[in-house]
Amino acid sequence: MTAMTGKSVVVVGGSRGFGLGVVRAARAAGARVTTVARTSGLAGDATDEAFADQVLAGTRPELLVVTAGAVPEMRPLSGHTWESFSVGWHQDVRIAFGWLRAALRLPLPAGARVVVFGSAAELRGSPLSGGYAGAKATVRMITGYAAAEGRDLGIGMTAVLPGLTPGTGVGETAIRAYAEASGVSRDEFAGRLTATADSVGAAVLGLPASGLADAYLIGADGLRPLSG
């Protein structure tokens, strides 16, 4: 997305990680950025559908970016309880549902864009993170449902799928767990990864203004569209 000067941008989960990367990129591009987080900006629970309705009605953003979600507990399947395994559905999926629904029901203005963060884990698997990969696959799926409805309203919607990224809550948790499982140090494992929260944030702002793909893999080398 270009020409952001003066545009209204809302970032759900914008106080840290990928969300903070998007906030920095949007502010640098001249946008008016509203951060939604539990304890800063517009403070509230991102899983609360009424809160999502209230925020969007008050800001009417031209770009809505949803990055909020739970940090999964990292352990093998046999070490999970159903509660720890399913946290992604109760958090990540519910958050995506609530904000997509709010964007459609308001609706956001024609020409608005909605970007929802999934994860490349849905394509590659993540055996230590319980149901995280499956929850993120569901996030991508319901974003596609919303995108089909949004076309008639002139609203573009897509999912972005970042890989493991140092400096993010999920990334650091997973890096430590998979480094230990691989018998290497955290720094050695992280050194193989080239994306940063800021590079991902900049890539989100580089999404096209029209003709969005169903989803994009996103990393240090930019965006790669996916279909289906």
Rank of each mutant, 00 (worst) to 15 (best):
G167W: 04
G167T: 05
G167Q: 03
G167V: 07
G167L: 09
G167F: 06
T168G: 07
T168Y: 09
T168F: 04
T168S: 12
G169F: 06
G169D: 14
V170E: 01
V170G: 00
V170I: 15
V170L: 15
V170S: 02
V170K: 01
G171I: 00
G171L: 05
E172M: 10
E172I: 08
E172Q: 12
E172T: 11
T173Y: 09
T173M: 14
T173K: 15
T173A: 15
T173R: 15
T173N: 14
A174M: 13
A174L: 09
A174T: 08
A174R: 03
A174S: 15
I175T: 02
I175K: 02
I175G: 02
I175R: 02
I175A: 03
R176K: 13
R176Q: 13
R176L: 12
A177N: 04
A177K: 00
A177R: 00
Y178T: 07
Y178L: 08
A179V: 07
A179W: 12
E180I: 12
E180M: 13
E180A: 15
A181K: 12
A181Y: 13
A181T: 06
G183I: 13
G183E: 12
G183A: 11
G183S: 13
G183N: 05
G183H: 07
V184D: 03
V184T: 05
S185T: 15
S185K: 03
S185V: 10
S185R: 07
D187L: 12
D187N: 08
D187E: 15
E188I: 08
E188C: 09
E188R: 10
F189H: 09
F189P: 01
F189K: 03
F189V: 00
A190W: 06
A190N: 04
A190E: 03
A190T: 12
A190H: 07
A190D: 07
A190C: 02
G191A: 14
G191E: 04
R192G: 11
R192A: 09
L193C: 04
L193T: 06
L193A: 01
L193H: 00
L193F: 02
T194D: 11
T194I: 02
T194A: 10
T194L: 11
T194M: 10
A195G: 00
A195F: 03
A195P: 00
A195W: 04
T196H: 01
T196R: 06
T196V: 09
A197P: 02
A197M: 06
A197C: 00
A197H: 01
